[in-house]
Simulated assay, not measured.
Amino acid sequence: MKILVAEDDETTGAFIARGLREEGNSVDWVKDGRTALIQATGGDQDVLIVDRMLPEIDGLTLVKTLRGAGTRTPVLFLTSLGSVEDRISGLNAGGDDYLVKPFAYGELSARVAALARRPPTLEQETVLRAGGLEMDLMARKVTRDGVAIDLLPREFAILEHLLRRKGRVQTRTMLLESVWDIRFDPMTNVVETHISRLRAKVDKPFDTELIKTVRGAGYRIDA
């Protein structure tokens, strides 16, 4: 395996690098977050081992930046911050596993091997399209035929839901669960109202209607 270790403590970093190399792995050891970011951005490694308390760029920011840039390499956080809140923040930042110092090398080795065995994560689309409509999920921008469309957050969420399921009918219940996180029918016309507003922005100014009403079923976006 090819492993990148980001650890600023000399003793700990040398200990980890030596142990992993003795097991036949190719190991790069860096001592600050900025260097780690540069080396990890290409996604050439099989596993990243990241200390949270790194100089220049801390471990959480490092992993968040990598995930935002589309790097999906598995990350094992290695840190002395061991509270439940610390673990949660690490996992929410994009970490895949969390090991608290002090640690047994055998456990670290086993966790690294387990991460490397995971099937690769399917890359999720960051730009959704239908006809001349384009939604950039990273930039949070929507255009149609090159014309910018300003959407409110809920309208954006509805359009994203429909675009991800392009060509498939989405019922009112599906939209309520996905966009509003409502697991029951509140007996309001909230879905219909937002669809109407969305159509006024996405369809009305243009020649072709993309958001279709399927009578008695729901809504669908066609390519």
Rank of each mutant, 00 (worst) to 15 (best):
K2V: 01
K2W: 01
I3M: 00
D8L: 03
D8E: 02
E10G: 07
E10M: 13
T12F: 01
T12L: 03
A14F: 12
A14G: 05
F15G: 03
F15E: 11
A17E: 06
E23L: 10
E23V: 03
N25Q: 07
S26H: 07
S26Y: 09
V30G: 00
V30K: 03
K31H: 05
D32P: 09
T35P: 12
L37Y: 10
I38H: 10
G43T: 03
D44A: 14
Q45N: 13
V47L: 07
V47N: 02
V47T: 01
I49Y: 07
V50D: 01
V50Y: 05
L54K: 08
E56R: 11
I57F: 09
D58H: 00
L60G: 09
L62Y: 07
T65N: 05
L66A: 02
A69M: 04
A69E: 04
V75A: 00
L76Y: 15
F77G: 00
L78C: 11
L78P: 06
T79Q: 10
T79I: 14
S80D: 13
S80I: 11
D86R: 12
R87A: 00
I88T: 15
S89K: 13
L91Y: 12
N92F: 08
N92A: 03
N92K: 08
Y98T: 15
L99Y: 02
V100W: 06
K101V: 09
F103E: 06
A104S: 12
S109P: 06
L115S: 05
L115G: 03
R118M: 00
P119H: 02
T121I: 10
E123Y: 00
E123M: 07
E123L: 02
E125L: 09
T126S: 02
R129H: 07
R129V: 00
R129Y: 02
A130T: 07
E134T: 15
E134I: 15
M135I: 12
M138K: 15
A139W: 14
V142D: 04
V142C: 00
T143S: 08
R144K: 10
D145A: 10
D145N: 02
D145S: 05
I149A: 04
I149S: 04
D150A: 11
D150F: 10
L151N: 13
R154Y: 12
R154P: 14
E155I: 03
I158G: 04
I158V: 07
E160Q: 14
L163N: 11
R165I: 10
K166G: 14
K166L: 14
Q170S: 06
R172C: 01
T173A: 05
L176H: 07
L176R: 09
S178T: 12
V179D: 14
V179K: 14
W180S: 09
W180D: 12
D181C: 04
D185I: 04
P186A: 08
M187D: 13
T188N: 13
N189F: 10
N189E: 11
H194Q: 11
S196A: 10
L198P: 02
L198M: 06
K201N: 02
V202C: 05
V202A: 04
D203L: 12
K204D: 00
P205H: 04
E209I: 15
T213I: 11
V214P: 00
G216H: 15
Y219W: 12
R220W: 03
R220Y: 08
R220H: 01
I221P: 06
